[in-house]
Design a protein around this nucleic acid. Structure first.
Lengths: 345, 345
DNA sequence: CTGAAAGCGCTAACAT
DNA sequence: ATGTTAGCGCTTTCAG
């Protein structure tokens, strides 16, 4: 056995497949992209050679040459929020039918991270951007506009979108919830939410809520906020605190289902009559609520549908089917569950 | 005002910044990458021009020229599982200190999707791959090996890793849990889990569990599986079913905390003495459990730490600090909570 | 400290 | 149906 020096391992290229199959690089490229007419024989020969070598095309080179990138940037504030995985599910569902691929970036609700993530994503020249929220700082807006890429802002339609927008009106959601609560005759309403000045969606919801109360000459009787920790536990604690401070409250609205669930559990343990003595509602329409002792009222924000619609817009833009910015407002629906309806219908 | 035809909008390049700043493309490139010596004056001039134009470098071209990509592919089965966002948190925490960027791909526990995601990710020539699980089909293993990229398989160390591996031994976790349960004198043990032949980690855990029982001449008295739907609700239903069928059970082990929580809630409603009459335990050490009426026993799988260690390995490989494959076994710990300890310590 | 030339691995646009 | 040529926008390398 001769002892020839091993040449340094060079990354594999089209050329290797070309040589292995005895076909020009161009034809190999055609086969690998199912493009143009290639004879059945050549096609098979190439495919076999490629598979045999374990060849994976270099999309970096491909993208540079074709100025086409099949990536869709999805920028969201958090993964642990329950709602974002759902949106992502809707996006994936639609993109799976196309040649497009979602790529996720997380900002942790921090504007400076959002800026960095957008910059980073844009530097890969994606086919589209789906981004949570409609509030972005100037730098972000500038980048998104200048990039000349389809942009879909999601989960909030109250404001001035960069391009397309899909989601519920958070303000309207707040109003609708307030109306539902008032209609049931509740009057002393407490609000419990996250301490997040940067969660604009929660803020707008709250604004819509108070606005409707104000129109009837009412206001939120008490509020309580939390940050960090187990949302379920915080829900308990905040509920105990707010009711301790203000025993006359007859309704509690929670800014998300998880803290609402915590509150519900605590109230049941205390033997509080729900919803006779105290009504409760959460927000998001989380699946989780199905397993609680009593079904917490909530509001479905159409997360999955939001994801689907956003993805459809990007896909439409990518294949030229769609050329204009689009605005899709999703209708949020109140789920009364067992904790909001005081009077039997 | 003259009516000159607007030239077609061409994507912005280094050249535009070069012209705007009156400096060669090469120097602009140097400034933008903080590379080499550039005079303070030139640097500022370039930076201003770039910012002014809203220039975002084209990483595709950069990566092609330098064969350096700052992306780390993170491939996980699901986002709605609670555990993966935590791992991702650990990964991000470490990568944030570097120039590397995580990019997430989701497989939905489907091997054919895993294959596709790996292929797609590899085609972008990432600096590393972090992938959940150690079980991959031949095509996947072949790609991962051939790619000549640092690979870290996570969350399971029982098997033959492609390269590096970080996580708990799922089998050992099952054994440890069995020992803890037996030590408390429980004897009629039921198991409740997900109906997922492809969730190898759950399977191995179960195998370790039964193995330990077998060593004492015991076996799992009954089992129940579910697929899809609200885990909390399924936990309730399964618990009712299994206890209905087999009232003599004195312990239930759930393959995840969410169904465990459902079971716990149901049992408490039924007035079952926990853990006197019936012991319960989940798995994962989820934060969620903090808010339950009683604290469910569980096992912390060190998710965040797993993410951190995996990211450290990739970072080390990327900067040349680390050259050998590494194996990091994380120690899972039993959290007794209020539902496992029969006798006060 | 700055610039010029060559080329990364692929594909568009033409040949043939 | 297949091959040839000329870049894509950047970075590497080498010269000033």
């Amino acid at each position: 056995m001769t002892d020839r020096p091993i040449p340094p391992r060079r990354p594999m290229t089209l050329r290797d497949v070309s040589e292995a199959s005895g076909v020009s690089e161009m034809t190999v490229s055609r086969v690998l992209r199912n493009r143009g007419d290639v004879s059945q024989t050549t096609r098979e020969r190439v495919l076999e050679a490629a598979k045999d070598l374990g060849y994976v095309p270099n999309k970096i080179a491909g993208a540079l040459a074709s100025s086409r990138v099949n990536l869709v940037a999805v920028i969201i504030p958090s993964l642990s929020n329950m709602v974002f995985p759902d949106v992502l599910g809707g996006i994936t569902e639609v993109l799976d039918e196309t040649h497009l691929q979602p790529v996720v970036g997380v900002t942790n609700y921090r504007p400076e991270r959002e800026e960095k993530v957008i910059y980073e994503m844009l530097s890969w020249r994606p086919s589209g951007i789906i981004i949570a929220g409609i509030e972005h700082n100037d730098a972000c807006r500038k980048m998104l506009t200048a990039a000349d890429v389809p942009v879909v802002e999601i989960m909030d339609v109250d404001g001035d979108p960069v391009d397309s927008v899909v989601g519920i009106s958070q303000r309207r959601a707040g109003r609708t919830m307030a109306e539902a609560i008032l209609k049931q005759g509740f009057e002393q309403i407490g609000f419990l939410g996250t301490q997040m000045p940067l969660d604009h969606r929660a803020r707008k919801r709250f604004e819509g809520f108070t606005e409707t109360l104000a129109r009837r000459g009412m206001e939120v009787a008490d509020q309580e906020f939390y940050a960090g920790g187990s949302a379920l536990k915080k829900g308990r604690e905040m509920t105990e605190t707010i009711l301790g401070r203000n025993p006359d409250l007859d309704f509690l609205w929670y800014s998300n289902d998880m803290i609402g669930a915590g509150g519900l559990l605590w109230c049941l343990e205390q033997g509080i009559d729900i919803p006779g003595r105290l009504g409760l509602a959460g927000f998001n329409g989380t699946e989780l609520l199905d397993g609680l002792p009593r079904k917490l009222a909530t509001m479905d924000a159409g997360r999955r549908e939001t994801g689907r619609e956003a993805a459809k817009i990007i896909a439409g833009r990518a294949d030229g089917t769609l050329t204009e910015p689009k605005r899709v407002e999703i209708e949020p629906t109140v789920a009364f569950g067992d904790t909001l309806r005081r009077y039997k219908p």
